[in-house]
């Protein structure tokens, strides 16, 4: 187990290197000059520009820049922005908001998706199952920002149940609507997966055995079917929590939440490559860690893959 974990952590290094390299290259290729973006209408004197370019190593070759950056990352130094603030501080300051949003959305998704999926799976082929299918496909099909804007208008402006945007109301009130929007979109996939998995398991021989033991239908479903049906679902859920962090970026912008999404958008506009790469690197890292956690906990639910 320990050896496996260590091996997996070592395997993360090349993945992280590859991912950051691609992201770094993409920001390097972003059109426009970061210094020009910094100053706006009135250009700086040539000498000042040259000085700034030198201070930020902007004239170094790409590979040297990337090399410096990645060496810093492994020391926990994500660089500084143009105002001299460490990128890591900027991210950590805003991360709690994004994290709260992602976890809330994930929790709502888990409840909505599992309830609909289990309900549909147990009544496969019946009216309730078809209704669940329509419901999930509907939310899968509508783009997230449409649901977001619609929800904002209706619940925020029209009914006034929650603030349409902003974080003043704090957790949970400021987070409920954006989290629900994210959850509804993502719950569709979870519901479909849960349903399919449960339908498969309900056909399994060992459920016939359970019936031949004279067990009640409740005991057959809760004691024998669901845990088996959850095996693929757990993997999906674990990975999707990391995905939620990425998805939060767009929703934060719509609901004006001061998370890393807003920071990311602002940094792209300002051509602040270090911040963009920092955020992206962090998201990649989170994704890798969740992936590992899912694999390590998998054995708890499925003894056949215990390591």
């Amino acid at each position: 187990m320990l050896g496996y974990t260590l091996r997996r952590i070592l395997q993360m290094i090349p993945v992280l290197l590859g991912a950051t390299f691609i992201i770094y290259a993409l920001t390097f290729l972003m059109p426009g000059d970061p210094i020009a973006a910094l100053t706006g209408e009135r250009p700086l004197p040539e000498a000042t520009v040259a000085q700034i370019r030198q201070a930020y190593h902007l004239d170094d070759p790409f590979f040297v820049q990337y090399g410096n950056y990645i060496l810093g990352v492994f020391r926990g130094d994500f660089g500084i922005d143009f105002f001299g603030r460490p990128v890591l501080d900027l991210i950590l300051e805003r991360l709690p908001v994004t994290f709260a949003l992602a976890v809330t959305a994930w929790g709502l998704k888990l409840v909505i998706g599992l309830v609909i999926g289990v309900y549909g799976g147990l009544r496969a082929g019946k009216a309730a199952d078809h209704f669940a299918l329509v419901f999930t496909v509907l939310f899968m099909g509508i783009p997230g920002f449409v649901i977001a804007l619609g929800g904002q208008t209706y619940f925020g402006v029209h009914l006034g149940w929650v603030d349409p945007a902003g974080i003043r109301a704090g957790w949970p009130m400021a987070f409920i609507l954006p989290a629900l929007v994210m959850a509804l979109e993502a719950a569709a996939g979870l519901a479909r997966l849960t349903r399919t998995s449960l339908v498969d398991v309900l056909r399994a021989e060992y459920l016939r055995t359970a019936k031949a033991k004279g067990l009640s239908p409740q005991r057959i479903i809760w004691g024998h079917a669901l845990r088996n049906a959850m095996i693929p679902v757990v993997t999906y859920l674990g990975l999707s929590l990391a995905g939620m962090l990425g998805g939060a970026v767009i929703i934060e912008a719509i609901f004006n939440l001061p998370g890393i999404g807003g920071l990311m958008v602002a940094s792209i506009n300002n051509k602040e490559g270090t911040v963009v790469v920092g955020i992206a690197t962090l998201l990649v890292l989170v994704y890798l860690v969740f992936n590992l956690l899912v694999d390590l906990t998998y054995g708890l639910i499925d003894p056949r893959v215990r390591i």
Binding site: A204, E205, Y206, R208, T209, A210, K211, A212, K213, G214, L215, S216, H224, R227, N228, I231, I301, D302, P303, R304
Partner: peptide, 26 residues
């Protein structure tokens, strides 16, 4: 009533024991 009889009075042995046993329970 059938459930009360299934197990205590009549029971069954299946062909493929691997698929007849629940993989996630001891």
């Amino acid at each position: 009533r059938r459930r009360q009889l299934t197990g205590p009075v009549m029971s069954m042995v299946f062909q493929d024991a691997l698929s007849a046993l629940n993989p996630v329970h001891p």
